[in-house]
């Protein structure tokens, strides 16, 4: 294992956020670590000792200050802009063609489609005001909910070939958390039966399919929850999927 220090300047966040993904550059793989104000790149090839990290905070550069939204049928052509503190997203959702959505600030979000072969028509976001919102493609708010946690993502189900929502509960770091699955019915969100109990707070919940320019055809039927186990203090990663009840 090798640790690569991440350069920084200015005030540091006490709850840093970011994401890891991979690109291919001229046929060579590149690991990318994206932070709110910093974009770092690592060439994973070669001996471990020669690994180097190159970072840029130039906001003119593509993807600096923007996080890819990996949850849902879209993978790469969209991104959300970080706020200046790097704590949440401003609500501006970018696509290659420019701003696609302009919604209330949020912590996490995902796209939804009613069927896997349909284009994404819905978007769900966990707002910083404590409300989760279901929106259509024109930013119209279809439904909103209080009591959800700040971690949500979308996941594909092979059971009904539809997209579903996973959401943490509204608890703080001192409590064990749970994840509830929801489905979309007639543009309404309906919870499935039983939430999954976890051994600590959910620190991150995201699509199993990390953004990549090389592969869109992943199954998208798994999500990864990073949990801090309150009994051990260790961080644990869980793969979560929907199992059909035949």
């Amino acid at each position: 294992m090798k640790s690569l220090p991440i350069p920084h300047s200015g005030p540091q966040s006490r709850a840093p956020r970011g994401q890891l993904f991979q690109f291919s550059e001229n046929g060579n793989p590149r690991l990318v670590a994206s932070f709110p104000k910093l974009l770092c790149s690592i060439n994973p090839l070669g001996p471990l000792d020669s690994l180097r990290i190159e970072c840029s905070s130039d906001e003119e550069k593509e993807l600096v200050g923007v996080s890819l939204l990996s949850a849902g049928p879209y993978l790469i052509d969209n991104g959300a802009k970080w706020d200046s503190s790097g704590t949440y997203f401003t609500g501006e959702i970018y696509a290659e063609s420019g701003i696609r959505l302009h919604i209330k600030p949020f912590f996490s979000a995902g796209f939804l489609a009613l069927k896997s072969d349909e284009p994404s028509g819905l978007f769900i976001a966990a707002g910083i005001d404590g409300r989760a919102r279901l929106l259509d493609h024109s930013d119209k708010e279809l439904e909103s909910f209080a009591g959800w946690g700040n971690e949500i993502t979308t996941i594909h189900s092979t059971c009904d070939d539809g997209w579903n929502v996973l959401a943490s509960a509204r608890k703080d770091w001192t409590d064990a958390d749970q994840i509830t699955a929801y489905r979309v019915e007639e543009q309404h969100i309906v919870a499935y039966d039983q939430p999954v109990a976890l051994p600590g707070p959910v620190l991150s919940l995201g699509s199993e399919q990390i953004p990549s320019d090389a592969e869109f055809a992943g199954p998208h039927d798994g999500a990864i929850a990073v949990v801090r186990n309150l009994k051990t203090g260790e961080y644990e990663a869980f793969r979560i999927s929907l199992a059909c009840n035949h």
Binding site: G149, Y192, Q194, V202, L203, S204, Y235, R239, S241, C244
Partner: peptide, 25 residues
């Protein structure tokens, strides 16, 4: 069908995150 939410696997311990990494809220 009603799908059931399932934890398929624990991927392992991740020790790369600093203690203050966020929370469900």
């Amino acid at each position: 069908e009603y799908p059931w939410l399932a934890i398929i696997s624990v991927l392992g311990l991740l020790l790369l995150f600093p203690p203050a990494a966020g929370s469900s809220v």
